[in-house]
């Protein structure tokens, strides 16, 4: 899926539905949407696997089997072993923990700072908006992975720094989307009504803006998780993220690359894992977008 798709703006929708009904209605519509259900189910299973990794994984991910180096998938090692004799399946299962934690934390950074900057820009306007948005524009001119690279280069390679880098690198895109959504709300009559009443700024932001952007936030956050997983894996792949022997999918992919000729399984399975999870997240994001998009609902 093209990453640029994410930047397709969603119109802030001022629904005529009550939050209670909206919530019930919303859940009903999610569960009516087969794609969404399948994706949620898949991601749920993946998360369970990650959480219960010590129970599910057949071996310790860092345990070395000296007598079975570069073994093809077989009965004992279902997905084979790597160059120093570690069980690939166990490493993949433990990798879920690393990948999901890192990408979720990265998105949390994007979410809080991006929402904050977006709302402030839209609400305050004027030179604050101008300055912040021009900075965001400059950062947006670079692909987010390059920006992440630059940040890691400054902070030094480590998983924590990769997480921060990925999170920060997505802020410009996220902030811009939230700003756009918030601008439509700002120009709405009910915000003007609030001003005419003399309500405080924080009240207007809390009671008038937030309830109307929650749907949009949910969609974008989901879509950005996909980006975060990919970016984290990419940073690890080039050696700037997780350091060996941490079982991280990107690192594993990179390690397996050297053995493509004689041990195909080493690069293939982490690759499939990354693809499937990112695919599921993006698919879910798309389903959510359809559910929230005014044009798709009758």
């Amino acid at each position: 899926m093209a990453k640029s798709e994410i930047y397709k703006p969603i119109q802030a929708r001022v629904t005529s539905k009550s939050p209670m009904k909206l919530r019930a209605d919303f859940l009903k519509r999610i569960f009516k949407d087969k794609r969404a259900v399948v994706c949620i189910l898949f991601l749920f299973i993946v998360s369970i696997v990650g959480i219960f990794a010590p129970i599910i994984a057949p071996f310790d991910p860092e345990e070395l089997f000296y007598d079975s180096i570069l073994e093809a998938p077989n009965k004992e090692h279902l997905l084979g072993t790597d160059a120093i004799g570690r069980d690939l399946l166990s490493r993949l299962i433990y990798g879920v923990r690393v990948t999901l934690t890192v990408s979720l934390l990265a998105v949390a950074i994007t979410f809080f700072l991006g929402t904050f900057i977006g709302l402030v820009c839209a609400y305050v306007g004027g030179w604050v908006d101008n300055v912040l948005m021009r900075i965001m524009d400059i950062l947006l001119a670079l692909p987010s992975i390059i920006l992440a690279l630059a940040i890691v280069a400054i902070l030094g390679p480590s998983l924590t720094n990769a997480m921060i880098a990925v999170g920060v690198a997505s802020i410009p895109g996220f902030a811009r989307l939230i700003r756009g959504a918030a601008l439509t709300i700002k120009s709405s009559m009910f915000v003007e009504a609030s001003r005419s009443i003399g309500s405080s700024h924080s009240w207007i932001l809390r009671r008038q803006f937030l309830p109307n952007v929650t749907g949009i936030l949910l969609v974008y956050t989901t879509l950005f998780i996909g980006v975060a997983i990919l970016d984290t894996a990419a940073l690890s792949f080039i050696g700037l993220g997780a350091q060996p022997p941490t079982p991280e999918w990107g690192t594993m992919l990179s390690e397996g690359r050297n053995y493509m000729q004689n041990a195909w399984w080493l690069a293939t399975f982490p690759g499939i894992a990354i693809t499937m999870v990112v695919f599921a997240v993006n698919f879910l994001g798309d389903a959510l977008r359809d559910i929230f998009d005014p044009k798709s609902s009758g």
């Binding site: 001022v14 629904t15 909206l22 009910f190 009504a193 309830p211």
Partner: peptide, 13 residues
Amino acid sequence: FQDPMASMNPKLT
């Protein structure tokens, strides 16, 4: 305001 629907936040009672 002119449009009572638009001048009220639909998410509030």
